[in-house]
Amino acid sequence: MKKIMGVLVLASFSQALAAQAIKSEPPLEAFSDEQISDVEYPDLQFEETEGDIKVYDKYFFFHRAETNFDVAFGDINECDALARGAGYYRSNVSYYSPQAGVLGSAAGSIIGSMVADAIFGSAERRRIRRVNLRNCMAFKGYERYGLEKERWQKFHFEEGFGEANAVKRRSYFMVQAKVASGPKPAGMVLEK
């Protein structure tokens, strides 16, 4: 019994060490003043319409007072990684139908699932990514502001059928970090 308890204590201790290793944050990337000044600050000024307000759950940006560029870039990167990690794939199609036979049903279900995912899955993955991103950035103390779609698209991207490439992602995050660490935006702070 003592031997088993010793093994359990040792296993618990090694799990605790592994958990500590997971909690370590990646090193913060440091940007020079020149790199930051090379990032163009986007035009955030627009005349808000009722249509804009209705889609602020999709088109928004973040800002946090007294945050520097390096920290904002790290926070955006981290929250994006967390948001992308929560994938959503769902199928309401049965893989077995006695009327069609097992093989035909399986093939039809696979094709049906692929079509359903192409139609509905992409939008749902984008929605879940936005919700996760909002939650993460709110947890880090960022405020959220609405933006019209055309201005939003200049420094944001949507992923549905695939991921944005690393170069595009980084360049957009640089602009987002400049906004998140820049002057306080005009407009109403949206709910988290």
Rank of each mutant, 00 (worst) to 15 (best):
R125P: 01
A186M: 11
R134P: 07
V71L: 14
E148R: 10
F60W: 04
Y95D: 15
V115E: 05
M137N: 07
L8K: 02
G85N: 05
K23A: 13
C79L: 02
N92P: 13
E78G: 14
Y142W: 08
Y96S: 11
Y172K: 07
E163H: 13
P27N: 04
Y145M: 06
L82M: 15
Q99P: 11
E25K: 15
V55C: 07
E124T: 13
A100C: 11
Q176C: 02
E66H: 07
C136T: 02
V93D: 14
K54E: 08
G87P: 11
Y89F: 15
E50W: 12
Q15I: 13
H63T: 00
L44Q: 02
A177P: 00
G182E: 02
Y88D: 06
R134N: 15
D33H: 07
A30M: 12
G51E: 10
Y56Q: 00
I53V: 14
V102G: 10
F120L: 11
A72F: 04
F157T: 06
A19I: 12
K58Y: 10
I110W: 14
K178T: 05
A18D: 10
A83S: 04
K168G: 11
G51F: 01
E124G: 05
S14T: 11
A186Y: 09
S94V: 12
N68Y: 01
V131D: 09
V179M: 04
S171P: 08
F73P: 00
F73T: 01
V115S: 09
D117S: 10
V115N: 05
V7M: 05
F155N: 02
K184T: 08
F73A: 06
G187S: 03
V175L: 08
N135Y: 08
G74N: 11
K154R: 13
F139V: 15
A18M: 12
K154F: 09
V175R: 06
